[in-house]
Amino acid sequence: MYRESEHTPQAIANRHYQVRSGQYLKEGWQIFSTQPAAYIGFLVLATITNTLLRSIPGLGPIAGGVSSSLFAAGYYFFSFRIVHNQRPAFSEFFNAFKNNYFLPIFLTNLVIGFITNVFVISASILFMIAGLPLLQSILERAAAEAAEPDADLEELLALLEQLPPVPYELIPVLIFAGVLLLLPGVYFGVAYMFAVPLVVEHQFDVWPALETSRRLVSRNWWSFFFLNVSIIFWNILGLCLCCVGLLVSIPWSSCVIVAAYRDIIGLRPTTDTPNPS
């Protein structure tokens, strides 16, 4: 347990630690298994709410994006109560919507999304441009081998033919540039993994949370990268299980991050009396 003076942004960023991925995956499951029905119920409720909000004409994408980021933070509120040996109420999931948390969590997610998406979207555009000749070749072959003319396919080919041709010698350059742009997006995506938890648990402001997480993670970035790859793998597996597995893997993923947070950063000292288990 760290002393109060060791919970400043500077002290946390300078933590000496080891990344124990296997331990975090196991402890994350232990956290999830204490209240599985609550985690799954909240995921179902959040999914339904986000779907309804996204269906609002005009404002749907914005409303859905904001609610998604706040609902995602709800897992942290609930999980941190558990690791503090307290009995969380279901309402803990909605703490991100409270006035003192809403703006910091929203802005933290907004900055993370902006920084990572600038690089990821730019890289995706370059990859798409580089893949246009291959796509056109595949579609032309499909049209030639089709037993009957396909109006939609011919319309798509006509659209591709109107685009400026991509010189073949330029394709490797576009792919290389896309990779160079993608790397910073991946870096920041991993480096900011503790930013929102720092807002939730340590109540840091936006920039201290972002910079503390980035500085801490960057010292052992590859280990955190492989931890994130492990989490993504289990979510893909959950998706393959007719999406039913996602009911478990999505909340469990947040529990894994909370387990890593507890081990590396440490829980904020609290005077709250733990609720009986």
Rank of each mutant, 00 (worst) to 15 (best):
P164F: 02
F225W: 02
N228I: 03
G189W: 05
I138C: 07
Q162E: 15
V196T: 13
L134C: 03
I175L: 14
E140K: 13
A143Y: 05
V229T: 11
F225R: 02
N235S: 00
P167D: 00
L126C: 02
S230D: 08
F188W: 15
L198N: 12
A130Y: 04
L134T: 11
W222T: 13
M193G: 08
V200A: 12
W207R: 14
L135G: 10
S230G: 11
Y187I: 02
Y168N: 14
L198K: 10
V196W: 03
L153D: 10
G185Y: 01
R215S: 13
A146G: 03
R141H: 13
G178Y: 03
F224N: 08
F204M: 14
F188D: 05
L216C: 08
L156D: 09
L216V: 01
V206M: 09
G178I: 01
G178F: 00
I138W: 09
Y187S: 03
I175S: 08
G189T: 00
V206R: 06
A123N: 03
E161M: 08
F224D: 07
F176C: 04
D205G: 15
Q203M: 12
V190L: 05
L163R: 01
I171W: 10
V166T: 05
L239V: 00
L157S: 07
V186T: 08
L134E: 12
A142N: 13
V200N: 05
L160T: 05
Y192V: 06
S137Y: 08
Q162M: 13
Q162L: 11
L170N: 11
I232A: 15
T212H: 10
I171D: 02
V229E: 09
L182T: 03
A123L: 04
I231G: 06
E201W: 03
H202L: 00
A177P: 01
G185A: 06
P197H: 02
D152F: 09
Q162Y: 06
A143C: 07
L181T: 00
A123W: 02
G238Y: 05
I231R: 01
V173Q: 03
V200F: 11
E140G: 12
S124F: 13
V166P: 03
A151P: 07
E161I: 01
A195D: 09
N235L: 04
M193P: 02
G131T: 04
I236E: 10
A151W: 08
A130T: 00
I236V: 15
A143F: 08
L163K: 03
L174K: 01
V229S: 12
L241Q: 09
S137C: 05
A209S: 15
L126D: 07
A144I: 05
G131I: 01
L216N: 02
E155D: 14
Q162I: 01
P197N: 06
L135S: 12
D205I: 01
